[in-house]
Structure formats: structure tokens, C-alpha cells
Design a protein around this nucleic acid. Structure first.
Lengths: 161, 161
DNA sequence: AGTATTATAGACACCATAGATCCATAATAG
DNA sequence: CTATTATGGATCTATGGTGTCTATAATACT
């Protein structure tokens, strides 16, 4: 199991947009050249990001892409969920097995929390918890936080000279 | 991106072994029947678990599988790494791009921590952090913890009657 | 010893998806 | 009106997950 290359490209493209101080948008040619990936393929990825409101796209001469909102409001989780989809990482293949009765929470608590305590395999419950841990971390890290870190490193390099 | 069904099968199979109070091992027929998966396919998975020392296998009449160590010493992470492999979830396609210089840690600190502060993309660093969060959670949850939870639920159900 | 049972390992097939390319279309600046 | 740039669809290929089948090895029981 691995994250797709598209996620890699998307994140790096967004960082490139964040680094561009210019007022006009960045064309696909510059982006693809910087990342070392074909224009046509990166276009697909950028389209996804646009459809989800992460970037804006302007066609025509001097067109291109720009961040649709401040970089500190674009989390890693946002990007990954756009590219990889929002389905959960682990889904129990709900067989009607014998242990099923032990592992699955029957529809108890009909009054409160019906939606939360849904029928759920105990294995799936653990895996969901693990995924939530990862998501939380990804929520706390934004494009801006990477830009900041990059600046820190640049200064650190400069100081040593 | 999703965890494979094999991981699902492996985890459920191990729980089945943990639930079996008998002294003799559990055959592949019983296991596959319980999980609703073919014997041949599950055999592959069990072989992997055996090669990694998670289960023991005894061939011959009345043979089968049993846990190779106590259930509290088999973490979710153990199982997942056997089935899914140990490569990291995210690897930066290290292009020699322009932003590369900003995002990648050059081989600084030659004396201390050479192996830790290796050349590493900032994007990859964040993703690695996220993965570590997930791993930590998976390390803290074992086959035994699921068995305990299952017992708790069984008692809870019994009390209501 | 011989037979039935069970795990092991390899070869093979199938199919969904990631990765990638190409082309026709639409929209915009000059 | 033209050059430029993004958009969306069609298509191709390779890879890996899923699954089956068969031959082999090891063990228990009679």
C-alpha cells in the first residue's frame, strides 16, 4: 500500500504555487518543468485540485494556476483526500462468520449516537482509530508550514557561509 | 489507497486463533470457512505469517495453525507490516527540480546523526510523521486487546438480557 | 509400512487501477 | 482574429491484488 505519485505531484505543485511571489498565475509548463512530469498528466491533477476549490485556474494567455485560499488554510489532509479519495483506508469484508457476532457491534443504543456506534467490526474500529491519528497529523500540517520550514532552512544555510 | 483484503483476512484469522481455547492447532479448513475465503488463498496469507514468526504451522493429520507467541505480543503493526510490506507509505519522487534545493535537507551535520538527518524532502518528512502517528497507534493495539474487547461486549450483551 | 490428512510452494489467470499520452474543445489576452 | 492556456474524454500499458490449481513434503494414525 502506498500513496500515489499524483499525491506527490499535487503537494509539490501547491508548494511551488506558494513559493511564487508573482501576482499572475503559474502556467502548467512551468509547473510540470519544475516537477519533472508531463504537462498532460499534471493537468489532470491540477483539474482535480481546482474542482475541489484548492486552486483557481485561469485559461488563456498568461493564464495558469494559483492558490484559491491562503496556504495556511490548505492542509495536507485536504490535498490527500482530493487525490486519494475519501474512502477509509480499511474496510472489513463483512462476512457473516461465527466470530462476526463477537466482533461486530450490534445496533445497540438506539436512542443516542445511532450514527456513531454503527454496526462496526472491532478490527475495523482499531484501523479507523489508527487512520484518525494519521489524519489529525495531516490536518495540523499545511502548505504554509512547509514554506516556513523551507525558509528556515534557507536562512540556516546562509548563516553557515 | 487502501489496505489489502489480505490484511483483513490475516487479522481476522489471528483473532480466530486467539479465540480458540483448544490445545491443538486450527486447520485451514476451519479458518477459511469462518472467514468466508478460499483455503488456497488463505494458505498464502498464513504462510507469510508463519515465515515472519507470527504463527506456527504443523502439517499432517490434526495439524493447522496456532499463535507463535502470546496474543498481547502481536500488534496490529506487526501483522500489517508482514502483509503490506515495510516500505514507507510515501516516497518523494526525488526530481532534481528548482524547489528541490529548498525542500531537501542537504547532508548537513556530518558528525552527529548522519543517518537520521539524511537527505529528505520536506513533504516526505511531513508524510513520514503522519505515518509514524498511525504506526504508534497500531503498535499499541494487539490481537489480545481485540479479544478483551470482544469479551467485554459479550458480557454487556448478556447483562441486558 | 501405508494411507489419509494437512501445510507449502510454484505457476498461472484475471481484473481493477495507477500512470501516462494524445487530441479536440473552450476560454482568455492582446 | 490569433496565439496561448486550461479542460475533458478516449485510450493504452504495466503493475499488483485477488484467486485457483497442482505437485510436493511432512505428520498422525492404523
Amino acid at each position: 500500500m502506498q500513496f500515489s505519485k499524483s499525491t506527490d505531484y499535487a503537494l509539490h505543485a501547491l508548494i511551488h504555487l506558494g513559493l511564487s511571489e508573482r501576482s499572475h498565475p503559474v502556467g502548467i509548463k512551468e509547473l510540470s518543468g519544475s516537477l519533472g512530469v508531463s504537462e498532460s498528466y499534471l493537468s489532470k491533477i491540477m483539474s482535480k485540485l481546482r474542482q475541489d476549490g484548492i486552486v483557481r485556474a485561469v485559461p488563456g494567455v498568461n493564464g495558469g494556476y494559483e492558490l484559491a485560499r491562503p496556504a495556511e488554510q490548505i492542509s495536507f489532509l485536504d490535498v490527500i483526500q482530493v487525490i486519494e479519495g475519501r474512502q477509509q483506508l480499511f474496510e472489513c469484508s463483512n462476512s457473516s462468520s461465527q466470530q462476526h457476532r463477537l466482533l461486530v457491534e450490534q445496533g445497540s443504543a438506539p436512542d443516542k449516537q445511532r450514527s456513531l456506534e454503527r454496526k462496526e467490526c472491532l478490527v475495523e474500529k482499531v484501523m479507523l482509530g489508527a487512520e484518525q491519528q494519521m489524519h489529525q497529523y495531516m490536518r495540523e500540517h499545511t502548505i504554509q508550514s512547509v514554506l516556513d520550514e523551507a525558509v528556515k532552512r534557507r536562512n540556516h544555510e546562509a548563516n553557515k557561509k
